[in-house]
Design a protein around this nucleic acid. Structure first.
Length: 566
RNA sequence: UGGGGGAUGGUCUAAUGGCAAGACAGCAGACUCUGACUCUGCCUAUCGGGGUUCGAAUCCCUGUCCCCCAGCCA
C-alpha cells in the first residue's frame, strides 16, 4: 500500500478504500475505471471524476481503466471517442493498456443474459414501451406483473435467440429481469436488460441488433475487468441494489463495490450534457470547444492548463451532498498557475494615442523588460519606445475621481519600463467631443522607469509603440449566464433565457507589443495589468492573430468602482 | 403519499466522542515599476427541539428542509 501524499486531501471514498486495504479486501488491490458514454464531449464535471478515479488508482498503487460505455449506438459516435481520449490524456492521465469498450463484452454479456434466463431470473416480455410503463406502477403504487412473466424458460430462451437473430422489430420485445414489481425501488420492478435496436454500432457494425441496457452492462463490465471500486454519481444510488443483484444472481467471482459521490455544479454555468448540447446545436456556441463552454476542449481553448484543472478538482473535494462550486475558485486555480508560468507582455485593448511632444521625431529606443518577475530564469526582452504610443483608454480621465491614480491632465505617471510622462493637453474631436489624442511630455532622466531624484508616481501604465505595435483581435469572455444557477429556473422558464449577452466581446483594433508577432497557437501570456490571454488555436494565424482572454487579473480598481456605484 | 440519499461560515471541503480546521470569496492594512503577485490581520458555520455523556458536528429520539427515481438513455 502506498499512503496518499500529503497533497491529496482525504475524502469519504479514500477512507473506504483505506479500510478495504486494511481488511485485505480484494487482496489489497485497487482498480477503478472512468466509464464515459461516447455521446458528447467531456466537461469539467467529468474532470472531477477523472481526477478522482485516476487519482485514487495512483494513490493506492492500483490502476484505472478507461472504458467506453457504448451500449446505445443510436446516440454514440467515433468523434466523441476520439475527443474523450484526447481530453483524458491532455488532463495528464494514462490508461496504458487498459482501454476498454463495453461493446467488447457484448458476447459475454449475451451469455450472462442467457444464464439468467436459465436460472429463471429473466424473461422475454412482449409488452410495448407504453405498456411496460403502465405496468410499472408509480412512485406510490406498486406495479403489476407482466403477463409474460411466467413464460417458460424454454420459451424465453427461444425468443431471446430469435431477438438476437433479428426476427423481431425494434421495440416489439425486451428481455427483463424477474425481480419484484412491488419494490419501492422502481429500478427493481423487472428492469429491461436488452432491447432490440437494428442500428449499426460504431464498433461492432451489424453484428448485433440487440443491445444491453446500462444497468445490466455496467456492473458486469466492471466485474469482467476486475474493478474493485466502481465510483459513480449520486443519481445511481438507487441503482446499486440492481448492480448488486446481477452480480449475486450470476455468482460471478468479482463483485465490485459501487460508491456514489455528488457531481460537480459550477455557479453561472450549466453542466448537463443535454443542456450543453442544446447550446451547441442551437447555435448559441461556436461549438463544443467554444471558450465559454465548461467542456475540457473549451477550457483548453480558453487557455486553462491541465494542472490548473487538476488543482481545482483537488480543492473542491469529494462528498455526497449537492453543491454549487463558486466559479471564482476555478478562476483562482488558473490565475495561480499562470502567474507562475505565463510570460508578461504589454498589449493595449482599447487604444488611445499618446504623443510625446518633447521626444525626437525619428528616435526609437529599445528598452529592457522583464519576462516574468515570478521566474527570474525567464530573462528579459527588448521593447521599442518612440514618440507616438498607445495606452489604454480607461487609463486616462479628464476629471478623475479621488482614488483614480492613473493619467490625468497635468499628472505624471510611469510608462512601464519606459519613462515618466506628464499629460499636457487633451485633443478632442470637434464634433463629437471624444478624446482622440493625449499630448504629453517625458522626462529623459527617467529612462527605464526610475527617477534619479527619487520622486514617486502613483501609477504605472502599460503601453505600446504606435509604429511598432501589431494589430490583433482579442476576445473577452465573461460568465456564460447571468444567474448563479441557470438550471434552476422559475416558472419553467428556459435556462437559455439567462444566457449572458455579454459573455463574448470581440475587440478588433487591439495593439500588441511586437514580440507577440508569430506567437504559437495555444501559447499563454499575461498582458500586464489586464489578464491572461492565449493565442486562439483555431482562428489565429500570423496575418491576423486572435487572443482569447482566459481570465482577468484580480482587479482592485474595478472593485472600488463597483462599490461606488452601489 | 413509496423507495433512496443529504444538511458544518457567503461558497466548497475537513474534523469519525476531546481546542470546529483549510481553501475560495469578502473586508482592512503592508509591500509594489502590474491597483497583479506576496504578506499580515479580520469577518462568518455544526438545520430545529429533546436526550445520553465529564465532554456531542459526531451517538440516540424527534421534527424540518433539500436532492434523486415512474427511458426499450447513461
Amino acid at each position: 500500500m502506498t499512503t496518499p501524499d500529503a497533497a491529496t486531501p482525504s475524502n469519504f471514498i479514500s477512507t473506504i478504500i483505506k479500510e478495504d486495504i486494511k481488511a485485505n479486501k480484494n487482496n489489497g488491490q485497487v482498480v477503478t475505471r472512468f466509464p464515459p458514454e461516447p455521446n458528447g464531449y467531456l466537461h469539467i464535471g467529468h474532470a472531477k471524476s477523472i481526477c478522482l478515479n485516476f487519482g485514487l488508482a495512483k494513490d493506492f498503487d492500483g490502476r484505472c481503466h478507461l472504458r467506453f460505455d457504448d451500449t446505445n449506438p443510436s446516440k454514440e459516435e467515433v468523434e466523441y471517442i476520439n475527443s474523450i481520449k484526447q481530453d483524458v490524456a491532455w488532463l495528464g492521465f494514462e490508461w496504458g493498456e487498459h482501454l476498454y469498450f463495453a461493446s467488447d463484452y457484448f458476447g459475454q454479456l449475451y451469455d450472462y443474459a442467457v444464464e439468467l434466463i436459465k436460472r429463471g431470473k429473466a424473461y422475454v416480455c412482449d409488452l410495448d414501451a407504453a405498456k411496460i410503463r403502465e405496468y410499472r406502477g408509480t412512485l406510490t403504487e406498486p406495479g403489476k406483473n407482466s403477463p409474460y412473466r411466467d413464460r417458460s424458460v424454454e420459451d424465453s430462451l427461444d425468443l431471446f435467440v430469435r431477438m438476437r437473430d433479428g426476427e423481431f422489430e425494434d421495440g416489439s420485445r425486451v428481455l427483463r429481469a424477474k425481480i419484484d414489481m412491488a419494490s419501492g425501488n422502481l429500478n427493481m420492478r423487472d428492469p429491461v436488460l436488452y432491447r432490440i435496436s437494428k442500428v449499426a454500432h460504431h464498433r461492432t457494425g451489424d453484428d448485433w441488433c440487440i443491445y444491453p441496457m446500462y444497468d445490466f452492462a455496467h456492473g458486469l463490465s466492471d466485474s469482467i475487468e476486475g474493478i474493485t471500486h466502481s465510483i459513480c454519481t449520486l443519481e445511481f444510488e438507487d441503482h446499486r441494489p440492481l448492480y448488486d443483484w446481477f452480480l449475486d444472481e450470476l455468482e460471478v467471482d468479482c463483485h465490485p463495490q459501487q460508491i456514489e459521490f455528488a457531481r460537480l455544479n459550477l455557479s453561472y454555468m450549466v453542466m448537463s450534457k443535454r443542456k450543453l448540447l442544446q447550446l451547441v446545436n442551437g447555435g448559441f456556441m461556436s461549438g463544443w470547444d467554444d471558450p465559454r463552454m465548461p467542456t475540457i476542449s473549451g477550457l483548453r481553448r480558453r487557455g486553462y492548463t491541465p494542472e490548473s484543472i487538476r488543482n481545482f478538482c483537488e480543492r473542491i473535494g469529494v462528498a455526497k451532498r449537492d453543491s454549487v462550486v463558486d466559479i471564482a475558485l476555478l478562476e483562482f486555480s488558473i490565475r495561480e498557475d499562470l502567474n507562475k508560468r505565463a510570460p508578461r507582455v504589454m498589449g493595449v485593448l482599447n487604444p488611445i494615442k499618446v504623443v510625446i511632444e518633447n521626444y525626437p521625431e525619428d528616435l526609437v529606443e529599445e528598452l529592457d523588460a522583464i519576462n516574468n518577475p515570478e521566474d527570474p530564469g525567464a530573462g528579459t526582452r527588448k521593447i521599442p519606445f518612440s514618440r507616438e504610443l498607445y495606452i489604454e483608454k480607461e487609463d486616462f480621465m479628464e476629471d478623475p475621481p479621488k482614488k483614480f491614480f492613473r493619467l490625468a491632465p497635468g499628472r505624471e505617471i510611469r510608462l512601464r519600463y519606459g519613462y515618466f510622462i506628464t499629460c499636457k493637453d487633451v485633443v478632442k474631436d470637434d464634433s463629437t467631443g471624444e478624446i482622440i489624442e493625449l499630448r504629453c511630455s517625458y522626462d529623459p532622466a527617467t529612462r527605464g522607469g526610475n527617477s534619479p531624484d527619487g520622486r514617486k508616481v502613483k501609477a504605472t501604465l502599460h503601453w505600446v509603440s504606435a509604429t511598432h505595435a501589431i494589430n490583433a483581435e482579442v476576445r473577452l469572455y465573461d460568465n456564460l449566464f447571468t444567474v448563479e444557477n441557470p438550471a434552476l429556473q422559475k416558472d419553467g422558464a428556459d435556462f437559455k433565457e439567462c444566457l449572458n449577452p455579454n459573455s463574448l466581446k470581440v475587440l478588433t483594433s487591439c495593439k500588441l507589443e511586437p514580440s507577440l508577432a508569430g506567437a504559437t497557437p495555444g501559447s499563454l501570456f499575461q498582458f500586464e495589468r489586464l489578464g491572461y490571454f492565449c493565442v486562439d488555436p483555431v482562428d489565429s494565424n500570423n496575418k491576423s492573430p486572435v487572443f482569447n482572454r482566459t481570465v482577468t487579473l484580480r482587479d482592485t480598481w474595478a472593485r472600488i468602482q463597483k462599490g461606488k456605484k452601489k
